[in-house]
């Protein structure tokens, strides 16, 4: 997994609450058995018209947002289905950081497995980010090490993050290998449990 320490990038804005993972990656693309190549299907039903051409009404199709890597979103982003394909699609599209007032639980978790940083900021802060550029993209810096989002005007906003998740993302560590270092504890637990079951 690609580490994320400090990321500077262009913002894109998605002004909609409760964006569910069915929108982020519709079901017709879940049949693939690969993990890569989902970026082209990101927000498919919103992004493309019936004839396959880009929907000019959809925020991410705005030419100004091309190359954006920081998505600013609203409450409960990523709700619904557990499909990790949503995180794969966002990462493959080029998003590295998502800023929102709240995230759905499973999606939030899935982000960290894919080098994607979801940052929870206060609703007022998110509102400020939406209004400060009057809809135009600007550059932001997200510093995971220092746990803060830095605006071009010099303002910065701190954010909370679980220390273990932070450590893994800073170092690009994958979970399975780390967990297997606890092999003895797992085996011990299994043995205790099987004894308890017999007794």
């Amino acid at each position: 997994m690609e580490p994320l320490v400090r990321h500077e990038g262009k913002t894109a804005f998605l002004d909609k609450v409760n964006v569910d993972t069915d929108q982020i990656i519709p079901k017709q693309f879940l049949k693939r058995i690969e993990r890569s190549g989902f970026g082209q299907f990101l927000f498919y039903d919103w992004r493309y018209l019936d004839d396959g051409s880009p929907n000019p009404e959809f925020a991410l199709n705005h030419p100004d947002y091309a190359g954006a890597s920081i998505l600013v979103a609203r409450d409960n982003f990523g709700c619904g289905s557990s499909r990790e394909h949503a995180a794969w699609a966002l990462a493959d599209y080029g998003i590295r950081v998502i800023l929102a007032p709240s995230f759905a639980d499973i999606f939030y978790n899935n982000c960290f497995k894919n080098g994607l940083l979801p940052v929870v900021l206060a609703s007022e802060t998110i509102q400020h980010l939406f209004t400060v550029g009057a809809g135009h993209p600007y550059s932001l810096t997200v510093d995971l090490e220092k746990q803060r989002v830095e605006l071009p005007d010099g303002n910065s906003y701190p954010f909370d993050i679980d220390p273990q998740r932070k450590h893994k993302l800073l170092n690009g560590l994958d979970d399975v290998g780390l967990t297997l270092q606890h092999e003895a504890a797992i085996a011990d637990y299994e043995q205790r449990r099987s004894k308890a079951a017999v007794g």
Partner: peptide, 21 residues
């Protein structure tokens, strides 16, 4: 009982465990 993503499916297959807050 709760839903997990595919990375966690892999994690449970390999370790029978999950990291949780």
């Amino acid at each position: 009982a709760f839903g997990i993503g595919t990375s966690e499916v892999e994690h449970v297959l390999a370790t029978q465990c999950l990291w949780q807050v």
